[in-house]
Every structure is written in C-alpha cells, then in structure tokens.
Amino acid sequence: MSYTYWFIMSVYITIFAVIALDLLERHELGGALEAAVSNNRRLLYIHIFKLLCEMSVIWLIVAFIGQIFMGWISL
C-alpha cells in the first residue's frame, strides 16, 4: 500500500468518525436541538443541509473506494 493510500484513508476514517460523533451529538441533544432549531431559522437550514452533506460525503468515500477496487483509481 502506498503512502498516498494510507494518508487518504486516514482522512476518510477521520471524516467517518466526525460524522458518527455528529449523529451521536444530534441523538443526545434530542428535544433541545428541536427547540433550538424552531427558534432560529438559519440554524434550521444549517442543520438540514449539514446532514444532507454528511450523507453525500459518505457516498463519495464509498465511490472512491469502489473505484480503487474497480481499478479506475490507482494509488
């Protein structure tokens, strides 16, 4: 495995960890988050699109790894 591979995988694993922690934080906040979002419309949109972006980046990482296995990206 190349240095590039390990570096990129380290970044991706960290991104996964950040997303997992964010989802845990969201779960722990529960009603407090809903109350905060209902009082602040900017926070509402930030929250919605942040979660959409998190789901999107997970797919992009899956797509990257998939392309390594298919041989379209070589490291």
Partner: peptide, 17 residues
C-alpha cells in the same frame, strides 16, 4: 436506501421552514 432515512429524520425539522 438514502431517501427513506432522510425523510424520517429530517422532515420534522423541515416542517418548521
């Protein structure tokens, strides 16, 4: 696979928009 969890988890927030 993607849309179902998004609708279930986020619609309650989007409703406030």
């Amino acid at each position: 696979i993607v849309g179902t969890p998004l609708l279930r988890s986020l619609t309650k927030f989007v409703k406030q928009s």
